[in-house]
Design a protein around this nucleic acid. Structure first.
Length: 804
DNA sequence: AGCACGCCGACT
DNA sequence: GTCGGCGTGCTC
């Protein structure tokens, strides 16, 4: 008998290795590497992934695989390898790596049930428990516990009256609907129709239909098309002319939408020059990483589209990654428009079932192109011809939970395996990427000019300190207000951008400066206007806003800061006639509302679009001629070495929204630090100079791209314990790594407490540290006991993006 | 992660 | 003397 090496669904250090199981004879030919199986594990059943099938095992008493959960492996050979790479590079459990590569629908659902041993054992139940199995011989454990004491239930099990059962199910279900299929040939049907009674006109109609349509059809559609009731169909099914069959259908999130077919556009000289090396790489099956550096509006997307075209003509497949936030209908339209139903779309707005369906279209080779957010990098294609990452500098490509991977790294890894090009596109490349392009690790392709030669918009920096001195205490500078009014008169549109990070509305006492903080986390509570409540964004704690300051009893305690709601409020005060559309988490949480609001703005039903990060990307409307950034510097002061870079990228991005068409655009940055280089250079859209200045700073402070970094965060309920462990770890790291490596810490994390747990960290900066992974693993091993028993948490992020 | 096994305190 | 606390170690 063969042996399956299985990675079980138990994310723990001790189980992070294959377990051997016998493959029962009847499954001998069935079970293959990459399949999910149900296996016994201790007293319960768990899901597992077959890593490999082998002939021998060093373990003597093997259990058998219970059953496979898939007909076809969900992970192919390449993805199994990629999972290995993922767990090794990000130090996560293998099971977590595999799960991260699959749609959530394939995650196991576990049920613990209490089952009566014999069907008629009801009479054996002690007093008070007779009702427990009244309707069914087995009940969910949770139900049983609610019904009776754990003690009484355990007694039942001991006495052999009931048993505990463990069940494993896949979360996602394939959606099936009732289809009608013809059983007779067209000729037979003709004859049958003759034999029908005259009054059976509806049945005749149905037969008529099936004489011409031999394909299965959804019953619902059939009834609708012929305008009949189900009884006519039923009659024919009974007489075996037709049959009912449940067939799988896809939940298509874009079902009702028509996509206008678009043709490749003629390329500009610059575009042709840029695309040539990509095409060369495609036709030579050569892995190469390209950095496509093109200003906003320079036509990067057309380069993507035509590269993909090239790949498709070769019979290969393409993955396009887009930041979640930019995965707007506008973007999807462009791909669906060009490649039609060869495109699958994967993003977080889809339901679990929808994601699963899109994923299966890929698995079954029904599509050739995937457009999706981060996790789409694991699309199960087998002949990848190109991977494109748009807006490659975006932070959303880095996953902030385990496995803490960066989609860019995964893309390059896959590109190597498939010998295909990886194209990183951006107007403001990540410093790491641009540095690599400078060094020749990546090939730099530039698109320096905008399409149709539109000039970049004029940017004006407004010093808000001056405004304050002049007695303007509102959040709108006089210039901005003037221009706003001007656009209203001209019937042109404005986008107001609020950089919300770091400045959400909090509740503060105007007399003593007391700020209401979360009792469990070291963070101020965010004010939510609609419920008049304060909420912690880290642990979910909620409280009523106080009427009196708890510190000084003053009644002048109220919400502060500049949430979009507050801006909207003030906006309607200063320009009452303005029609404002507000886009933020609150107004776009409902499915489709994002799209609806944009549509409304596009149709000219509003003068001003006010929003946060989500409006920084992809907006491309001809009537936008003014962009205002209300506080350009809020991000600048976050405790993060990337804050300047992020500010520059965001401001450049936002400015790009104005004047993309015939009408010229203007941009206003309001700031309290106008002299800061990232604001100054963003206003000139001068990436190259920004790159130079920022690189200098990174070099001086030994940050990426000059150094690699790894962040260790320790958290525990007790402060002393947290500090002690971090101190110990820092010491070990310092001792074991090379003297050139910089080890910072222990220090409190920027958010020093979350959910009543103190957080301390240690930051490692290094150029070359071949033993780092081993050292980190040995640390995790050393604290293994306390992690599982004492509530200690140690998180390790190799190449972190946020230092919190 | 669960769960059993096993060694110490407070109780019928 | 037993019931039950949770520290320790195992799951093919």
């Amino acid at each position: 008998m063969s042996i399956a090496k299985v990675i079980v669904d138990v994310p723990a250090k001790q189980t992070d290795r294959p377990f051997d199981y016998l493959i029962p004879e009847h499954l001998e030919e069935v079970i293959q590497p990459g399949m999910r199986v149900i296996v016994p594990f201790g007293p319960r059943k768990v899901q597992g992934f077959v890593e490999s099938v082998e002939e021998t095992s060093s373990f003597k008493s093997l259990k058998k695989v219970i059953e496979p959960m898939d007909v076809v492996p969900v992970l192919n050979e390449e993805l199994l390898l990629l999972g290995d790479w993922l767990s090794k590079t990000t130090l996560c459990y293998k099971i977590s790596a595999y799960q991260a590569m699959l749609p959530p629908a394939l995650k196991a659902k576990y049920e613990r049930k209490l089952k009566l041993v014999s069907e008629n054992a009801n009479f054996m139940l002690p007093d008070g428990l007779e009702q427990l199995f009244a309707s069914e011989p087995s009940v969910l454990w949770e139900e049983a516990v609610k019904f009776a004491s754990i003690h009484a239930i355990q007694k039942l099990v001991k006495e052999g009256i009931a048993e505990v059962h463990y069940e494993v199910q896949s979360k996602g279900k394939k959606k099936t609907t009732k289809h009608i299929i013809p059983l007779m040939s067209a000729e037979e049907m003709l004859i049958y129709a003759e034999s029908l009674a005259k009054q059976a006109s509806k049945q005749k109609q149905v037969i008529e239909f099936f004489i011409h349509n031999r394909e299965p059809i959804e019953q619902r559609q059939l009834l609708e098309r012929l305008n009949i009731s189900s009884s006519a169909v039923k009659g024919l099914v009974e007489r075996q002319v037709l049959a009912e069959k449940n067939l799988e259908i896809y939940r298509d999130p874009y079902e009702q939408r028509q996509f206008a077919k678009t043709e490749p556009l003629p390329l500009t000289g610059e575009q042709s020059t840029a695309i040539a090396p990509i095409h060369a790489s495609i036709s030579n099956d050569k892995h190469e990483v390209f950095l496509l550096y093109g200003v906003t509006g320079s036509g990067k997307t057309e380069v993507y589209l035509q590269s993909i075209q090239n790949v498709l003509e070769k019979g290969e497949e393409a993955i396009v990654l887009v930041p979640e936030i930019a995965l707007t209908p506008q973007m999807v339209n462009r791909f669906k428009g060009r490649f039609g139903d060869q495109v699958a779309v994967l993003h977080s707005g889809l339901s679990v079932g929808e994601k699963y369906d899109e994923w299966r279209k890929i698995q079954r080779k029904e599509v050739k192109v995937v457009v999706g957010a981060r996790s789409a990098i694991f699309a199960p294609f087998e002949n990848l011809g190109i991977i494109i990452i748009d807006e490659e500098h975006e932070m959303t490509y880095k996953q902030e939970e385990n496995p803490r991977y960066h989609a860019r790294d995964a893309a390059i890894e896959r590109g190597k395996i498939h010998n295909c090009p990886v194209v990183l596109g951006s107007a403001t490349p990540a410093l790491e990427s641009f540095a690599r392009a400078q060094k020749g690790v990546y090939t730099l392709l530039s698109l320096p000019s905008r399409m149709n030669n539109r000039p970049l918009p004029e940017v004006e920096i407004v010093d808000m300190r001056e405004e304050l001195k002049e007695g303007n205490r509102s959040m709108f500078s006089r210039v901005l207000l003037e221009k706003l009014k001007d656009r209203m008169e001209k019937q042109e549109q404005t986008v107001l951008f609020l950089n919300k990070r770091g400045h959400s509305s909090f509740v503060m006492c105007r007399d003593c400066g007391y700020v209401v903080k979360c009792p469990h986390c070291d963070i101020s509570l965010t004010y939510h206007r609609y419920s008049n409540q304060m909420k912690c964004h880290y642990c979910g704690y909620e409280d009523q806003t106080p009427l009196q300051c708890p510190e000084c009893n003053s009644e002048h305690i109220r919400y502060f800061g500049t949430g979009t709601q507050k801006v909207e409020e003030e906006l309607t005060k200063v320009i009452p006639e303005a029609k404002v559309i507000r886009m933020d988490v609150d107004t776009t949480s409902r499915k489709g509302s994002h799209e609806k609001l944009l549509k409304e703005f596009q149709d000219g039903n509003a003068d001003i679009l006010l929003g946060t990060q989500m409006i920084a990307k992809g907006l491309d409307f001809p009537r936008i001629t003014l962009v205002g950034v209300l506080s350009a510097d809020t991000m600048l002061h976050l405790p993060d070495f990337r804050s300047s870079e992020k500010t520059f990228q965001l401001l450049t991005q936002v400015s790009g929204r104005a004047g993309r068409h015939e009408l010229a655009g203007e941009v206003i940055f309001q700031t309290y630090t106008p002299e800061h280089y990232s604001i100054e250079l963003a206003s000139q859209q001068d990436y190259d100079r920004f790159y130079q200045s920022e690189m200098m700073i990174r070099r001086n402070h030994s940050y990426p791209p000059y150094y690699y970094i790894t962040l260790i965060t320790v958290s525990h309920e007790e402060l002393m314990k947290t500090v002690a462990v971090t101190e110990q770890i820092t010491k070990v790291v310092r001792h074991k790594l090379s003297p050139k490596t910089v080890v910072l810490g222990p220090v409190a994390s920027p958010i020093s407490r979350i959910k009543n747990r103190y957080r301390y960290q240690c930051l490692i900066k290094y150029k070359q540290e071949p033993n780092l992974k081993e050292v980190l693993k040995s640390i995790l091993d050393h604290y293994q006991g306390e992690i599982s028993s004492n509530g200690l948490q140690i998180s390790i992020d190799v190449n972190p993006y946020i230092l919190m």
